[in-house]
Computed example of a mutant assay.
Amino acid sequence: MRASPEDQLTIGEVTRRTGVPASALHFYERKGLIFSERAGRNQRIFSRHMLRRISLIMVAKRLHIPLSDVAEVFAGLPVDRAPTHRDWQRVSRRWKKQLEERRRVLERLENELTGCIGCGCLSMKACLLLNPDDTLQGRGPGPVRLQQSSVALE
């Protein structure tokens, strides 16, 4: 018999299939990332299509994507049925935009860090960390110029 996305799985089966502990599944459910129903003896049962959501949560965790971002993307998916190919494409496009923006921010940070470490302050006019006589203290804490350049680029 072929598995259907609508098949029901117990929490034990989901744990065995995904390697995710039951406590984490409960947590994801409280966060609205996955959903279950109650069967006899008040046992949680999950639609098989929740396995894909759980897998994507695991990938997002490896990429250090906050669960709030995952929830935002998952909000566009149906919970009462298996998402269609079109549903997943829509979510994928949205997530791709977020990942591209994250990549741009990381590249900017890498360039700033490389520049700051490697410059040796040879360019006292271009250095974003330069703050002679602490004249920038009134504009806030930290490397004010560096923070402002990051905000301006976003």
Rank of each mutant, 00 (worst) to 15 (best):
residue 63 L to Q: 08
residue 48 R to T: 05
residue 61 K to N: 07
residue 33 L to N: 03
residue 63 L to T: 03
residue 61 K to A: 06
residue 30 R to E: 15
residue 68 S to N: 07
residue 44 R to N: 09
residue 29 E to C: 05
residue 32 G to Q: 12
residue 29 E to V: 05
residue 68 S to R: 14
residue 60 A to Q: 08
residue 52 R to W: 03
residue 61 K to P: 01
residue 42 N to W: 08
residue 65 I to D: 03
residue 56 L to S: 02
residue 46 F to W: 07
residue 61 K to I: 03
residue 57 I to R: 02
residue 49 H to M: 01
residue 55 S to C: 03
residue 58 M to Y: 00
residue 29 E to A: 12
residue 31 K to W: 12
residue 60 A to P: 08
residue 55 S to D: 14
residue 31 K to L: 15
residue 33 L to A: 08
residue 40 G to C: 03
residue 57 I to L: 05
residue 62 R to K: 15
residue 50 M to I: 02
residue 53 R to M: 05
residue 58 M to V: 08
residue 37 E to Q: 14
residue 68 S to C: 05
residue 50 M to Y: 03
residue 42 N to T: 01
residue 60 A to L: 06
residue 34 I to P: 00
residue 62 R to P: 03
residue 38 R to M: 08
residue 45 I to Q: 10
residue 55 S to P: 00
residue 53 R to N: 06
residue 57 I to D: 08
residue 58 M to L: 05
residue 61 K to F: 01
residue 33 L to R: 05
residue 43 Q to L: 13
residue 53 R to Q: 04
residue 66 P to M: 02
residue 52 R to V: 11
residue 47 S to P: 09
residue 49 H to Y: 15
residue 59 V to Q: 07
residue 36 S to E: 10
residue 43 Q to M: 12
residue 49 H to I: 00
residue 43 Q to H: 15
residue 61 K to R: 15
residue 48 R to L: 02
residue 43 Q to I: 13
residue 64 H to M: 04
residue 55 S to K: 07
residue 36 S to N: 06
residue 44 R to Y: 13
residue 46 F to T: 00
residue 43 Q to G: 01
residue 66 P to G: 03
residue 58 M to C: 10
residue 65 I to G: 02
residue 68 S to Q: 11
residue 38 R to N: 05
residue 48 R to A: 15
residue 59 V to T: 13
residue 44 R to A: 09
residue 34 I to V: 15
residue 40 G to P: 06
residue 37 E to G: 14
residue 51 L to D: 08
residue 52 R to N: 04
residue 37 E to L: 08
residue 52 R to Q: 11
residue 33 L to E: 10
residue 59 V to N: 02
residue 45 I to G: 00
residue 56 L to A: 03
residue 52 R to F: 05
residue 65 I to H: 02
residue 58 M to P: 00
